[in-house]
Design a protein around this nucleic acid. Structure first.
Lengths: 223, 223
DNA sequence: ATTAATTTTTAGATTAGTCTAAAAATTTAA
DNA sequence: TTAAATTTTTAGACTAATCTAAAAATTAAT
């Protein structure tokens, strides 16, 4: 029986999950120290520990990425956090801006039985009071309805969840320009004349896409 | 702003409250070690700390007693524990024997706003699923309906909450034999012939009481 | 009323999580 | 492309909570 994470470990895992824009992005020591209100030296130590426990991947000076088991843990914590927020707002009548601090504590309560019963009690909500999606018991996130990238306007963002037609040539092309499912994407500019777009891909910088391509890519909100 | 107790400190305070049969009774180092599944040496150290913080009274080798502020803390923790138990049983449909472990975690969540709203949500219950009373927001415990000591049978127990008639001679006599309000009392034997009783008073040993006296003393369940 | 048994405390270590200060590696910029 | 700035890691120390082993105080028993 592998023993459960400490409160501190859980907070590190959650922070890594939330700072990384994509599951693949490397989270820096400083960013983590900042987020957790602690010192880089402290983070360095903890990173070694989490790495030893195989919750994260870590190359010295290169930041960290969650492993599969690390992601699973992160999703469990986020699920708990968001379900408790629903409870606080819908049943105890807290305002949506008052619940974060309390949910930060409640998210560490250990009992999957409890959280699954709470889920049922709340009517299995898929989003929390802030509109963020709630992972299900298997860590799966229910994504919102998808729409075409071409239908989005400047500053809109979302996750690439699919393509309209599974055309091999299209897929090959997307591959070439590094567009993959699951990537976070943000529209930075739409050209009025030809509907071409400038988009920003997490960790992959800026890209220009023609309307021919944007009308093939499906986007959904929130991972 | 005096900072709040650590989880460990809260557990010590709660244990002292629960082991002591009366607020005055001295709780031994060993009893505490036993209850908290730790070692007497550890308890000795923690006792010094809690004593320094004036949460308990402590004389070396003589055990500890909660101070006023210590009792207040204990009651707050117990209130939270029992309210959460009501939630788990009444709204999440846990069985009464499944809730203790989870409530042990939930009782440490810090937010009086939360617990007071939970109290309202639950309909301000006065007893938990095990029949134990729930202290109100001021730490006051709603005692059950009182009855005369003379109406009790062997092995029944309760708390002395008053006398039937405020007769000075009676009160003086009770004082003399060390009977005071708030004391825990247990009937050990009832004499069929004259209704006299043998009772055990917490920390004060065994006492014989005539029917003239037992018919004047009011007892309620659960402090 | 001594001695024996028990309880409690002290002394010295250990672990998790944290810190500061300094060294090492990497990145940025002249 | 070398120097400067930044980031990250190491080294050493601290605190809270814990432990074991041994000493001291109290209580029980002969």
């Amino acid at each position: 029986m592998e023993k459960s994470l400490s409160l501190t470990e859980e907070n590190y895992i959650k922070a890594i999950f939330q700072i990384g824009t994509t599951p693949e992005s490397n989270v820096s020591t400083n960013a983590l120290a900042d987020n957790l209100q602690t010192k880089p030296a402290t983070v360095s130590d903890m990173i070694k520990k989490l790495s030893y426990k195989k919750l994260i991947f870590y190359k010295k000076y290169k930041g960290v990425t969650l492993s599969a088991s690390g992601s699973k843990e992160a999703l469990k914590i986020i699920r708990k956090h968001r379900l408790w927020e629903v409870f606080l707002v819908n049943h105890l009548y807290f305002k949506w801006d008052q619940v974060h601090e309390i949910a930060e504590q409640l998210e560490h309560i250990k009992s999957s039985e409890l959280i699954n019963r709470l889920d049922d009690f709340l009517g299995n909500p898929t989003i929390d009071p802030h509109g963020d999606p709630i992972p299900d018991a298997n860590g799966q996130v229910q994504l919102g309805p998808s729409k075409l990238l071409s239908e989005m306007t400047s500053h809109e963002n979302g996750i690439i969840v699919g393509v309209k037609n599974e055309n091999p040539l299209l897929l090959q092309h997307l591959d070439k320009i590094n567009i993959r499912l699951g990537l976070h994407i943000e529209v930075t500019e739409v050209n009025d004349f030809d509907q071409s777009m400038q988009v920003k891909l997490a960790d992959l910088g800026t890209l220009f896409l023609s309307e021919k391509i944007t009308s093939q890519i499906l986007i959904a909100k929130n991972l």
